[in-house]
């Protein structure tokens, strides 16, 4: 029993993970991004399941490392990080908080219609696609026709 009481609750772990920033879009956390799929105590071992956004995303290994560093700093010694590829990550898993933070940062959040709803800078809906791809695998490149500012759009997948 004494062992159980020394284990932080999974709610507590989720809270800690929500403070780990995404390495490429540091305004949102790895929890906001929807890539932490599970937090579970298996006996003495804490198992955190992480799913990659894109299969070739170079940030994936950094994310696992950041999660490990954060949890170790909270005193968790026995830790296992698992990669889970199914169900495949979808932008539907982005939190509402994450979507709002993206927009505030200048990245248009994903929309089911397949393009940004409005310019994250001036709010105009007069937009044009520059490229289907952008600065990271998860983004595309758009431009506002009114304020002329180019911006990133978080691709909807």
């Amino acid at each position: 029993m004494s062992q159980v009481t020394t284990q932080p609750s999974t709610d507590q772990i989720w809270e800690w993970l929500d403070a780990v920033p995404d390495p490429e879009i540091p305004v949102i956390s790895v929890v906001d991004l929807g890539i932490v799929r599970g937090v579970e105590w298996q006996g003495e071992t804490l198992v955190v399941s992480v799913t990659p956004t894109y299969s070739g995303c170079p940030a994936t290994s950094i994310i696992s490392l950041d999660i490990e560093t954060a949890l170790r700093s909270k005193g968790i010694e026995d830790l296992k990080i698992e990669t889970r590829i199914s169900p495949a990550w979808t932008t539907d898993w982005l939190s509402e908080k994450g979507r709002a933070k993206l927009e505030e940062y200048g990245i248009a959040p994903p929309q089911p219609a397949g393009g940004p709803e409005k310019c994250p800078r001036c709010g105009s809906k007069n937009l044009t696609k520059v490229s289907q791809f952008g600065s990271t695998p998860c983004k595309a490149h758009w431009r506002c026709q009114d304020c002329l500012e180019p911006f990133d759009y978080f691709k909807c997948i």
Partner: peptide, 8 residues
């Protein structure tokens, strides 16, 4: 990059 990721 996607293709190399899938290769992994």
């Amino acid at each position: 990059l996607d293709l190399i990721g899938q290769t992994q």
